[in-house]
Design a protein around this nucleic acid. Structure first.
Lengths: 149, 149
DNA sequence: ATTTCACCGGACATTCGCATCCGTTGATAC
DNA sequence: GTATCAACGGATGCGAATGTCCGGTGAAAT
């Protein structure tokens, strides 16, 4: 017992940071709980396979960004701050990562637009916009579902 | 002078690793050169804003993966190993990152499929497949173009 | 042949994301 | 009031990704 469990793997095009993935795992668990049910860090850690001490830190960031709410003491724990369908992935990513991805040039140029594009601008914009659309349109209500959209 | 120039920014949902971004910058420059023209590391570094010493290391990885070819000595440098339209982004990412993204569960489960899905499986698959499609269908011939596809 | 040039490749330094630890705070149970 | 519980938040450690350095190798110019 006390099996190490699957930590984040390293060195690969990952799309999401390890921390963001951890946040989504925990939120996915909370999304299927009864509304208002408080779940402790230790339980979330067990269900998600995320290191408990680190998960605690991630959850705190989500609380400070009003994605989660928390209560202390007996019967305490974490719960979603709103119904699952009103928590968008983009909010989660902003909370744990702070993603200024929207206007970032793949060439590192301070200004890069369709008017003054860098060589990578078109292909990079294509990928970036797709990702942002996904992050903005996906909510916690979409987890654990057969993907209808 | 000797201005630091825009290194990769940190802490954000990045989609690509810094190294992968560096590789694409350099390849984008080489893609618009005359076929067979050899470009030196120092010149690529200036044009792309990538630290020269590190870029040299990235370029070597691309050579060992047959994305680039290199020659030493006077008039030496790097050039694409093939025409731009035959170099897919996925090859580049595999060369510098080694991306086993294809079958990786966002919940860290050893096995996760549509038969035995984790809560995040549907939404995660959606994003992952979109990214892989982008990486496989985009080539160096697409850089610097108005994005027609 | 010698010099110069530019890639090669490994050793080394730095930075940052990931992870752990521990004392503090506030709420509940008794 | 006291004890217990669980979140809070700062300090610290670790390892991978990033970035630097330098001697070696082979090709071209003279």
């Amino acid at each position: 017992m006390a099996r190490p469990l699957p930590q984040v793997s390293t060195h690969s095009s990952r799309l999401l940071t390890g921390t963001a993935e951890y946040a989504l795992r925990a939120l996915a668990e909370l999304a299927v709980c009864a509304p208002g049910e408080m779940v402790r860090t230790v339980d979330l850690a067990k269900r998600t396979g995320v290191p408990e001490a680190y998960l605690a830190k991630v959850l705190r960031r989500l609380v400070s960004h009003d994605v989660l709410r928390a209560t202390k003491g007996h019967g305490g724990g974490f719960a979603l701050a709103r119904p699952p369908d009103r928590i968008r992935f983009v909010e989660v990513l902003e909370a744990v990562d702070s993603m200024p991805l929207a206007n970032r040039c793949a060439f590192g140029r301070p200004s890069c637009s369709s008017h003054d594009p860098c060589p990578l601008h078109p292909v990079w914009t294509q990928l970036k916009d797709t990702f942002l659309e996904w992050a903005r349109n996906t909510t916690l209500a979409d987890v654990g579902r057969p993907l209808v959209r």
